[in-house]
Design a protein around this nucleic acid. Structure first.
Length: 516
RNA sequence: GAACGGGUAGCUCAGCUGGUAGAGCAUCGGACUUUUAAUCCGGUGGUCGCGGGUUCGAACCCCGCCCCGUUCACCA
């Protein structure tokens, strides 16, 4: 029987054959370093022996700048000699000349490989190069007749052979599944993806810098929790062999960070992953990154000011101003941001008053009257939350703080001064996205125990997202925690905003997908 | 978990009422000394997501399953 070759196998076979030819000719296809001195060059008459003896690799971005600076003086008199290395992303063969494009992290540049400027062997060996290969070239810079800055190559060498074809150059890679499963292909084929993740770094760096400057200490608390706490969410379960005990991947660092405030730190934060064993959609990935901070001797109103300052600093540093577009909306982050109580917002956007009644059934009836689904297991607080999500959140395009949340959906927040049915809690919303959650931290151990017991009752009624009683945390509060305010920011969502990304998967390098 | 949309060459996509699987790019061979989605000539390349069924005949119709996307549910 004939051997069966798929197109893909055939393409790889061709490239492997080229790789072997390179090796046979003594040109190792996977080099260890870039060594421009080892590249044979063909010099023009009058050029000195070391005209092309490039000391080190030039960043492609810097080549343009150098050439443009030298240009007015006339580059014939003072040629710009360069050595660049990168991935070859295009290859246009014209017979006696070849144009290719090289890309490194700083940019892309066209290179011109002409028979008359290369040794016969070098020109012949171009046949064994493929799009995707890493090569190094030595040459001098000129402008083509279409004014494109180009390297006239006098010598080149393969650095690393690419054995698989890159996605098509014009349409790129659009299949989202392949983009996420093989992110490296996405990055190569769609260079703007690199910018999204560069901006993600900028968000985190700016935030960290902002916090460090204000005296916050960055700490690392456990990812493996014996009792999952700090958020109402279903955890992932894992197992420790030596202790022969199940552990939970953390759903939030909150309870550990507050223990540090008990211990004597006054400003702490942690930027790290959380894990929640829940649904996946455009705003939710099973693992996601949060920043949580705790500040002693502060309350939620003071923290609201700081949150606004910090987010504005991040927006300015990343989008370069206070205005930016998010998914079709123009967002203006100029201070001060709108601040409105949760119940005012419900009156304003949903047209019902859930504050006047504390009665669960009346609230359910009101919610249904405006088309919000309410199921029998939902308590008063949950109904309020549901109405907020359905009727208020879609209007929160411009930066807005909602504050004063119902007690029963805020088991770790302090009761509001003068109104024990509410808690001192706020959430910032931008572009319809909930980007954070903050409160005056509950530091009364008696109250905290009661709130946990409420959660335990919820759990017994079948709510598997309800929180567990954490006795050691209560013990810590009994030792005494100063008045403290705490904030959590969803880093992924913040990055979605400043990169105008519709899906959280666009801002996570390797989003969780079903294993094949 | 539910509804809807999708899965055809390495990539991007066509494929009508069921009648021998197509194009562009890439690749291979040839031509070409400033091209840039280079151009021109010729060729290779397919388990049409997987498994059943209906039919003389299925990429297309029916059933089941897998994967992706969107919306909803849950949640941050």
């Amino acid at each position: 029987m004939d051997e069966h070759h798929s197109a893909e196998e055939e393409l790889i076979k061709n490239r492997v054959a080229k790789m072997e030819r390179l090796r046979e000719r003594g040109d190792e296809p996977f080099k260890y370093l870039v060594d421009f001195h080892a590249i044979p060059v063909t010099r023009e008459e009058g050029e000195s022996d070391d005209a092309y003896r490039i000391a080190g690799r030039d960043a492609i971005g810097s080549v343009r700048a150098r050439f443009e600076a030298a240009e007015p003086q006339g580059t014939d008199a003072a040629p710009v000699y360069v050595g660049v290395a990168g991935r070859m992303v295009s290859f246009r063969d014209h017979g006696k000349t070849v144009f290719a494009n090289l890309r490194d992290e700083t940019g892309q540049i066209q290179v011109y490989l002409a028979k008359k400027h290369l040794s016969e062997a070098a020109f012949e060996a171009l046949k064994d190069l493929d799009i995707g290969d890493f090569i190094a070239v030595a040459g001098k810079v000129f402008r083509t007749r279409t004014q494109e800055i180009t390297v006239e190559v006098r010598g080149y060498t393969i650095l690393s052979k690419s054995l698989r074809p890159l996605p098509e150059k014009y349409h790129g890679l659009t299949d989202v599944e392949t983009r996420y499963r093989q992110r490296y292909l996405d990055m190569v084929a769609n260079p703007e993806v690199l910018n999204t993740f560069r901006r993600r770094v900028q968000v985190v760096n700016t935030m960290r810098d902002w916090l460090n400057r204000r005296g916050y200490l960055e700490v690392e608390t456990p990812m493996l929790h014996p009792i999952p706490g700090g958020a109402t969410a279903r955890p992932f379960i894992t197992h420790h062999n030596t202790y022969d005990r199940d552990l939970y991947l953390r759903v939030a660092p909150e309870l550990y960070l507050k223990r540090l405030i008990v211990g004597g730190f006054e400003k702490v934060y942690e930027i790290n992953r959380c894990f929640r064993n829940e649904g996946v959609d455009t705003r939710h990935n099973p693992e996601f990154t949060t920043m949580e901070l705790y500040e002693a001797y502060q309350d939620y109103m003071g923290l609201m000011d700081e949150t606004e300052e910090m987010l504005v600093a991040i927006i300015e540093a990343t989008v370069g101003g206070l205005e930016f577009d998010y998914q079709g909306d123009r967002i203006n982050a100029a201070r001060p941001w709108k601040r409105i109580t949760l119940f005012e917002a419900i009156r304003e956007y949903a047209g019902i008053d859930l504050e006047a009644t504390q009665d669960r059934d009346k609230a359910a009836e009101l919610a249904r009257s405006i088309g919000v689904d309410v199921d029998p297991t939902m308590g008063y607080g949950k109904i309020v939350d549901e109405v907020m999500s359905a009727k208020v959140q879609p209007h929160l395009i411009q930066p807005t703080f909602l504050y004063d949340y119902p007690l029963e959906i805020s088991p770790l927040a302090k009761k509001k001064r003068g109104n024990p049915t509410l808690t001192e809690r706020f959430q910032p919303f931008i572009g319809r996205l909930e980007v954070g959650n903050a409160f005056s931290e509950l530091n009364d151990p008696i109250d905290q125990r009661e709130r946990f017991m409420d959660q335990v009752r919820q759990r017994e009624k079948g709510d598997d997202e309800a929180q567990f009683l954490d006795d050691d945390f209560i013990t810590a509060l009994e030792v005494g925690m100063p008045p403290t305010a705490g904030l959590g920011i969803g880093i992924d969502r913040l990055v979605m905003l400043v990169t105008n990304s519709a899906s959280i998967r666009e801002v996570i390098l390797f989003p969780q997908l079903r294993t094949l």
